[in-house]
């Protein structure tokens, strides 16, 4: 079993299938010391199959490992797994959340297209956010989505943007309590009282330090500009 460096933690992962091995490949580290260990059982694979039918066992192994890592980080390492696409621009990270198929990837690609090397795609699908010394830090992860977008970097999280598809481009600021239910839909946590309360704990700590934006946008090139103005200048007009 090898040790991998994910979200600034050394994680020993038992890994059988090639699908997961390929994802994890560039995250391997030489250390023999690790923060925690993840082993999946046949029962874990069955549970993943129950949650979403129609994938291969190798993919279920991957989702089971991700679930176990996210639960451990939530329980013991002051962090939570997001479903979202996150970019870095001028040393600040912006995390875009929306239900699958809304166009998170399309939107971050507009940033990339317009701002080129000034924008780094940290992760296209499953980033971790951890509170380190009272600062929310977002981390890339081996789980990069179907477009395989991401790099193994971290950055201070500055804002979470909820993406909504719309013909016009506009944005409005949101308060933490307006954001809570959407945050709970965009994060992973065990579906029990402990998991829900722990998720709210972490989300509250994150909310204290960042801003929230509700972004309504189309897929035109200037959609990114509406988001950029709101995020970097606090300007919410078109």
């Amino acid at each position: 079993m090898a040790v991998y460096r994910i979200a600034d933690l050394n994680i020993k992962i038992g890994c059988n299938g090639n699908y997961l091995k390929t994802l994890l490949k560039s995250y391997i580290c030489d250390s023999k010391i690790y923060d925690f260990e993840v082993i999946t059982t046949e029962e874990d694979i069955q549970n993943e199959r129950k949650a979403a039918d129609g994938f291969t066992d190798e993919m279920y192994e991957s989702s089971a490992v991700l679930r176990k890592i996210s639960e451990k980080i939530l329980a013991d390492y002051n962090g939570i797994l997001f479903h979202g696409a996150v970019i870095e621009y001028k040393s600040r990270a912006y995390l875009f959340c929306a239900p699958s198929g809304t166009g998170k990837t399309t939107h971050i690609m507009l940033w990339k297209k317009s701002l080129k090397n000034d924008v780094t795609i940290i992760n296209g699908d499953k980033p971790f956010v951890r509170i380190i010394d009272n600062v929310p830090i977002v981390y890339g992860s081996p789980w990069k989505g179907k477009e395989n977008l991401g790099t193994d970097v971290s950055c201070k999280l500055d804002a979470i943007v909820f993406v909504n598809r719309c013909e016009q481009n506009f944005a409005r600021p949101l308060s933490p309590d307006e954001s809570l239910f959407r945050l709970l839909s965009s994060t992973a946590y065990p579906k029990n009282a402990f998991g829900r309360l722990k998720a709210i704990d972490i989300l509250e700590k994150i909310s204290d330090k960042i801003k929230f934006v509700d972004l309504f946008c189309n897929t035109d090139d200037n959609a990114y500009y509406t988001a950029l103005k709101a995020l970097t200048e606090g300007i919410y007009e078109n």
Partner: peptide
């Protein structure tokens, strides 16, 4: 349900292991 403060609101959080998201939280 357990009540918990979040920002300036109160959230009721389901203890049920089987509640789906829409039935798990009330603000």
């Amino acid at each position: 349900f357990i009540l918990r403060k979040f920002s300036d609101k109160i959230v009721a959080v389901a203890e049920d292991d089987y509640a789906d998201n829409s039935n798990s939280f009330i603000k």
